[in-house]
Computed example of a mutant assay.
Amino acid sequence: MAVTDEAIGKIKEMIVSGALRPGDRLPKEADLAAELGLSRNSLREAVKALSLLNILDVRQGDGTYVSSLEPAALLEAVSFVLDFHRDDTVLQAFQVRGILEPAATGLAAQRITPEQLSGLRELLTGLGEHPSVEALVASDLEFHRRIADAAGIPLLCSLLDTISAPTVRARLWRGITQQDAVARTLAEHTAILEALEEGDPETARAWATVHVASITRWLSTAL
């Protein structure tokens, strides 16, 4: 395993240093193994591991290429783990959201465009006062995705997308079992949007913290 780790490290260094860029084809196996001082077997294992992480793209009959290295593709491995929906993992996903979501919302308050604000307002008003739980959860996901996008950091947006996906079941369950969950979510979304409209990052960050903390506390109790 240590030899494979060394091989992975050397390929990673080539990518980090810019010797290999997104879309570049790797040299032939024998040539690359000789260049890096590796056995062909250890190189082959390293390539297999990096392809599972979407860092390398092995194309049969064509060669091995560096992937696009886009955050969404690289985070698929994290998504795979979260998709098992273990209760403790889902709780951790909410805890991580509690760290990242307020930061994204605070940044969005400084960077969001009038068009993006208008879209968020339409998203909320389109729900009405008494939406179904399913409609609310779908809107909730889209609401936060748009805010993360407005923060202007693609990696942060991709991280939040990845973390949010497996929390859908918990959000639905809360909406069904907690009496005031729907009304509270609508009120918190409205408060977040008003802070964004006022360009107030501190208030936006505070409301995002309250919003995520309320469901995290509920899930902790439910578990």
Rank of each mutant, 00 (worst) to 15 (best):
A77G: 12
S164N: 10
G61H: 10
F84H: 15
L156G: 00
A93L: 08
H144N: 12
T185A: 02
I192M: 12
F143E: 00
L82A: 10
E134H: 03
L100H: 05
P114N: 07
S164C: 08
E70Y: 14
E115F: 00
A183S: 12
I163C: 10
L100K: 01
P71C: 05
A72F: 13
Q116H: 02
T64H: 02
E188G: 12
V137A: 00
S118F: 14
L53P: 09
L193H: 06
R145E: 09
D140W: 07
L107P: 12
L159H: 11
L172I: 01
V182D: 07
S132C: 04
V96T: 03
A109H: 04
G98Y: 07
L160R: 05
V66F: 07
E142P: 03
S51V: 05
R174C: 00
V96P: 13
T177R: 13
D140T: 03
L52D: 15
G126V: 08
V137S: 07
V66Q: 07
E76P: 10
G152H: 08
G63A: 04
S132V: 08
A187V: 02
E188Q: 14
A109N: 04
S68Q: 11
L50D: 07
L75T: 04
E194R: 14
Q60C: 02
Y65F: 09
A77I: 15
G61V: 13
A183M: 12
E194H: 11
P154T: 08
S79W: 06
R146Y: 06
P166V: 07
L117Q: 00
A138W: 08
E122N: 10
R146T: 04
L82F: 02
S68E: 12
Q178P: 06
E115R: 12
V78W: 13
I147G: 00
L120G: 08
G175D: 00
Y65Q: 04
F84G: 12
I55N: 01
L53D: 06
F84N: 14
D180P: 03
A165E: 14
L50I: 09
I112M: 00
E76R: 11
